[in-house]
């Protein structure tokens, strides 16, 4: 069991690194826009000193852009903070859709880079007892491998349904994504996490889905 803990920790560190690198890139982009807007304000002031009149509408546009980007950066930092805290969170009871939403938010930039669209299916919230960070890690492994298999313009819809004492997380892929191949890759790469969470990974090629079966209550 201890070797599994080591493998779970190792995968977790890799996951944490990938996510924080991606988030820091998003912050950098927001800072770059704020920097250019601030610079443009300086340029316009310098031009006004040479006789070009300042356009209040233009200044308002720049101010709005800075405010919007600061708000965006603040959202990114909140997401980072929530994610960072999830890494040392014990077993908790939480809504599965919250976990899906968090995973999608973390993965969105990388999905966009690959031209893949991520959606969450409508449905009722299901309370599960789990380790959110480990489950998000497994979902990330699924998405990462989908990004590798998917071409531009593909779509993945994440959802969850209750089946007796289990919850089944589904990743519904567009037909071009081979779910059997995905199952093999995820089962291999995510094996320590799957074991740790007492989950089962099954491809459902008929419906173009990858299904992750997990118990509603965490089993120590």
């Amino acid at each position: 069991m201890s070797s599994y803990h080591g493998k779970v920790d190792s995968l977790g560190l890799s996951f944490f690194g990938s996510m924080t690198a991606s988030i820091s890139h998003e912050i950098k982009n927001a800072l770059a826009i704020i920097n250019e807007n601030a610079g443009l304000l300086g340029d316009l002031v310098a031009l006004s000193e040479k006789g070009r009149p300042l356009d209040p509408e233009r200044l308002q546009t720049i101010s709005d852009s800075i405010r919007r980007r600061v708000q965006g950066a603040d959202d990114i930092v909140r997401r980072l903070n929530r994610f960072a805290h999830s890494a040392n969170q014990p077993v908790v009871t939480t809504g599965i859709r919250d976990i899906l939403a968090c995973t999608v938010a973390l993965s969105e930039r990388l999905a966009t880079m690959k031209g893949v669209r991520l959606l969450i299916a409508a449905g009722e919230e299901i309370e599960v007892q789990t380790l959110p960070f480990v489950l998000e890690n497994l979902l990330w492994i699924c998405l990462k491998n989908i990004f590798l298999l998917a071409g531009e313009g593909q779509q993945v819809v994440l959802g969850a349904v209750r089946e007796e004492s289990d919850v089944v997380v589904t990743l519904h892929c567009t037909p071009e994504i081979p779910v059997e191949q995905l199952e093999t890759t995820v089962a291999t790469e995510g094996q320590p996490l799957i074991f740790f969470l007492r989950m089962q990974v099954r491809a459902d090629p008929h419906n173009g889905r990858l299904c992750l079966h997990m118990p509603l209550r965490f089993i120590e």
């Binding site: 982009n29 826009i33 250019e36 807007n37 610079g39 443009l40 852009s65």
Partner: peptide, 10 residues
């Protein structure tokens, strides 16, 4: 696009 427009203007 926003970054492009501002940097182009500058």
């Amino acid at each position: 696009r926003e970054f492009l427009d501002i940097l182009a203007e500058r």
